[in-house]
Simulated scan of single mutants.
Amino acid sequence: MAAVTSPESSPQPRVYFQTPPGGEESEVPVRKQGRVTVKYDRKELRKRLNLEEWIIERLTELYDCEEEAIPELEIDVDELLDMPSDGDRATRVKDLLVDCYKPTDDFVAELLDKIRGMQKLSTPQKK
């Protein structure tokens, strides 16, 4: 890529990039920033992804099965964050895990500890 400065347009020189001769712009894929990462903080999204991976790992241990065989249940972190107390959150998670034959108290305590301080992620608004 060639750089061209244009001092007459402003007191400070500016750099403009041009496509090299013979090259096409389509050769280099342009990567646009995702809408989700624009609305949310990447660090918070990474924390949420790590939490979801941890939940899946722990559920496979609790149900003693592969990820695909975990009973259909959804632990909604945003729903838990909306609840007023840890007691309410613990009750909700235990209700979801009612058919698990292994003890779930450690899982519930760890989950509540991990979501403490997390931010609720609202659904991005479509334009």
Rank of each mutant, 00 (worst) to 15 (best):
N50F: 13
C65T: 07
R58C: 07
V77N: 07
Q119L: 15
Q12V: 08
T5P: 08
R35L: 10
D86R: 08
M1I: 02
T123N: 07
L96Y: 04
G34M: 04
K102G: 12
Y63E: 02
S9K: 04
Q33Y: 15
R42S: 14
I55V: 08
D82M: 12
R48G: 06
V93F: 05
E57N: 11
I55G: 07
T5Y: 15
R35D: 08
Y16N: 02
Y63P: 02
E52T: 08
D76W: 12
I115F: 05
G117T: 00
S6R: 03
T19P: 13
K47E: 13
R48S: 00
E61L: 04
I115A: 02
G87C: 04
P71F: 02
Y40D: 01
E25Y: 13
P11D: 10
A109Q: 07
K47L: 12
A3Y: 10
K114Y: 06
M1Y: 14
V98G: 07
T5W: 08
Q125P: 07
K32W: 13
A2T: 06
D113W: 11
R42F: 15
Q125H: 05
W54K: 02
K32L: 06
G22W: 10
S10V: 00
T60F: 11
Q33N: 14
I115C: 10
L51T: 00
M1Q: 10
Q125E: 14
L121S: 06
R42L: 15
L49N: 06
Q125R: 14
D105I: 06
K114C: 03
M118A: 03
T123I: 07
K32R: 12
T60N: 01
P13T: 00
E61W: 04
A90S: 13
R42K: 15
R89P: 11
Q12P: 04
D64W: 06
G34N: 02
V93S: 03
V28M: 12
R46D: 15
F107C: 01
P20C: 01
I56K: 11
K32A: 05
E72D: 14
R48A: 08
V36A: 02
L59C: 07
G34A: 05
K94D: 13
A3S: 04
V108N: 00
P71T: 00
P7D: 00
